[in-house]
Design a protein around this nucleic acid. Sequence first.
DNA 1: CTGTTAGCGCCTTCAC
DNA 2: GTGAAGGCGCTAACAG
Lengths: 335, 335
Amino acid sequence: MNDQPRATIADVARVADVAPMTVSRVLTGSAKVGPDKTKRVQNAIQMLRYQPNEMARALRGQRSRSVGLIVPRLSDSFFASISHAINDVAKDCGCSLIVSTTNDDEEVEYSQAQMMVSRGVDGIIVIPGAGLHSKLKRREFSNVQIVALDKTIDDPSIDSVVVENKKGALAAVQHLIGHGHRKIAILSESNSLSSLRARFEGYRRAVIDAELKSITCFDFTAERATQIIRDLLKKKDAPTAFFTTNGPATLHALRSLFELGIGVPDRVALIGFDDFELADLLKPSLTVVRQPARELGRIAATCLFDRLQDGDANYRAKTIVLPVELVIRQSCGCV
Amino acid sequence: MNDQPRATIADVARVADVAPMTVSRVLTGSAKVGPDKTKRVQNAIQMLRYQPNEMARALRGQRSRSVGLIVPRLSDSFFASISHAINDVAKDCGCSLIVSTTNDDEEVEYSQAQMMVSRGVDGIIVIPGAGLHSKLKRREFSNVQIVALDKTIDDPSIDSVVVENKKGALAAVQHLIGHGHRKIAILSESNSLSSLRARFEGYRRAVIDAELKSITCFDFTAERATQIIRDLLKKKDAPTAFFTTNGPATLHALRSLFELGIGVPDRVALIGFDDFELADLLKPSLTVVRQPARELGRIAATCLFDRLQDGDANYRAKTIVLPVELVIRQSCGCV
DNA sequence: CTGTTAGCGCCTTCAC
DNA sequence: GTGAAGGCGCTAACAG
């Protein structure tokens, strides 16, 4: 391999016959430089194909112009869309994005965040994946801006960007009630994430207001889904409608219902939280609570970069709540 | 904000009452250190919650233990799955992953790669998105290992990991021919990517071998899809089957056919390249050529890290080809 | 406007 | 075994 070392600022300075500092000034515009020298420097840069060493810059200065993104899974289309949007914003800001997946492991979340800090990221956007006791509130992270996305982190100093979880769930369940359903089950992968909890709250509100009994399942995983649904439908107070609290849960339900040959919406109705590709092409098409995935990412990234600009003047954490939309299709029982 | 600066190696040395160098040795294991001092150093590290500054390490040494990933879109589930797998491998290797999306812009691909080099990445995995003339063969990149994924880059020094594109397409089209179809159209978003080209080759081989005429469309984008299909079906030699060359094209076709109310597989049969979530739950379920997305990512990452270990001893670029599988469901006309 | 000095945090090199 | 010096590439801070 052609191991020609990269040109440094000193090389440029030599070629342009100026001091390294002058080159630096031309590069960053941090001070005025005479037109001749500016020209010479620019020529030298071109000639040598000089590119500043961002590591050295980061080591020297305060900012690395890089941010971290921690996400449970990239293979989840909701998270992937968010990530894409964040990446677009980062790119526009000239920032690099260090991405890490946790596979829902809290320890990984923590250690990857530490690694990012070691790499000098200016901030971190995290989609919390594990319990509610994120270690990201520790003081090791007091020097980086953190923005929580999709779920909140219980720390007064951390910004959050979330959606109207409770309201969306409420609307979905009320819609099912409007169709005459009296036995509505909530199917959730867990109830230990702030987002899923809030959706449960919405469900509960709707159920209580209508004087119904709740039917809950908080361990609705891919493996157990079919068994759970089978059992649920066997009982004498079998639900006639399901509300699934996120994309994966909706998929599990769909797959199980198909497998069990249970007609939707005739035998049971279904509304899921989170829209996805093809939801409209299924038979029946799927009624869902749509979340603005790209917006979530865009706003979280913008929020982070704003913070980074501001320089913590009168800092106060904020929670941004984005609206959701009940997209009515067929699986709820509508035409 | 609690702006307590991070501990440095010097801080640790002071607390442990040893030389900074000794701390470094304990950290990296680059030389033996007496048991007492080792202990003292470890204690000091704990006490100060010391974490090495990776930027300084990278600046000093040869390796940054970070790699770049360049991908057209993260919002594409195929690319997202690949990215997830790559991330897992990187994590296992203790490497950070700098991710960047190009949105299929060749210039962005180039500039982001440059940025990554500026940040000292040891290697780059790229899913080429744009034309065949990737600028990544330039000598600016002679110091980083590059692995091309999903598509090849025409450079003898760049490793590639791809799937059996031609073979998969051939099998798909032959399957359609087996169903008696004589007029089979290929619907492709473009023909300027090595992967899509190879799939076209497979299509052409099958068509020629069966002495049929090819019906081609190489600008099958989301916007034009419906119009294209409508026009195609209006002609007197209207196709009775479609072969779509990637996930997005399959989705466009599906959506258009649904919109136009065209029955599948009765009126036209359909086979797509690339499997996806829910393909089996559609009515009809979709026959596809399945690619091992996670494997692709895993292997590409492993390939890169192997190269980084090796230290270019008798270097020769290789192309790894992964098998595909024709997953027969209903849209092709099977039961 | 321009140059010099110094140091970010770490580790290779060389002495002890 | 251990430590001291020096420099990776860059840019604040201070001269001039």
